[in-house]
């Protein structure tokens, strides 16, 4: 076994990963929070008003980063599910299942903020626009994965089944996107198109990118926090978990 695989196995072992993640989580949350505040300041205060949409466009600074994260979390989940299914790595199973609720949360925010943006701009809370519909399907895919994971008693089997579903979903996602685009062009002229920020001002782009970075860091913090809980749940019978449980209980008493 060479040094790299040895390192990989050591880091991937539940107690070690639990400890490392414990160190990283507050940092991720902290950096995410600071970056998020900076990004929001940039977006809400520093960025100039859009000449077409007025101040309503400022929703972009939460909407677009969340939309990116919704997709990113799905890819992260599917990649981990793939690793989990092929190499049967426990840690990947938990990482995949940890990212599902976070991705669902981001997708939900995307849908709600998109709706809130659509009302003043398009005059309606919801239109069957191609992007909105694909985003809705993405949310359903997340809910399916989470539902399947929750429905199966055995945790490892549940993670593998839900991971498999995530992989089917990732094959399906581009097909959905393509078909929905095709469907919407069939019913032409019924929706007002979102005005694309083709020539975006640098004062608008830096808050957007900062927010994107903030949500990414936040996502990793949350994934690690959830993975720690998942590891405790999975290794509930092991000694290292029992020690942590008793230590925490003693501190509470």
């Amino acid at each position: 076994m060479n040094a790299l695989t040895l390192w990989f196995h050591k880091t991937g072992s539940p107690p070690t990963f639990y400890r490392i993640a414990g160190v990283l989580v507050p940092w991720c949350y902290g950096i995410g929070l600071v970056l998020g505040l900076v990004g929001l300041y940039g977006g809400l205060v520093a960025a100039p008003r859009d000449y077409q949409q007025g101040d309503a466009y400022r929703i972009i600074f939460v909407h677009v980063p969340c939309a990116w994260m919704g997709l990113f979390a799905y890819f992260f989940m599917a990649a981990n599910a793939f690793v989990a299914l092929v190499w049967r790595i426990k840690l990947s199973e938990i990482l995949a299942m940890a990212s599902a609720p976070i991705g669902a949360a981001f997708t939900f925010i995307t849908l709600v903020t998109g709706s809130l943006w659509g009302k003043p701009m398009w005059g309606t809370w919801w239109t069957w626009d191609a992007r909105l519909t694909s985003e809705l399907v993405l949310l359903f895919l997340y809910l399916g994965v989470m539902g399947l994971y929750a429905a199966i008693e055995d945790r490892r089997q549940a993670a593998r089944a839900a991971g498999f579903l995530a992989l089917i979903g990732i094959v399906n996602l581009p097909i959905v996107h393509f078909s929905v685009n095709w469907w919407n062009t069939l019913h032409q002229g019924s929706t007002v198109r979102l005005i694309g920020p083709s020539k975006i001002d640098p004062a608008m782009i830096w808050p957007l990118l900062t927010m994107a970075l903030a949500t990414h860091v936040w996502f990793f913090g949350s994934v690690l926090a959830r993975t720690r809980t998942g590891l405790l749940e999975l290794d509930a019978g092991k000694d290292w978990v029992r020690r942590i449980a008793l230590a925490e209980g003693a501190r509470r008493d």
Binding site: V137, F140, L141, L143, G144, G147, L148, A151, I152, A161, F164, L165, I168, G169, N172, I175, V176, F178, S179, V180, W182, W183
Partner: peptide, 27 residues
Amino acid sequence: ALTVGMHRSGMLLALLVLPLYVPVLIF
């Protein structure tokens, strides 16, 4: 096949299947 061992899998099955049916329905 994913839900085969479960009791009362009806609603869950619909939740898993319907998003995958979307493109077929559209075309």
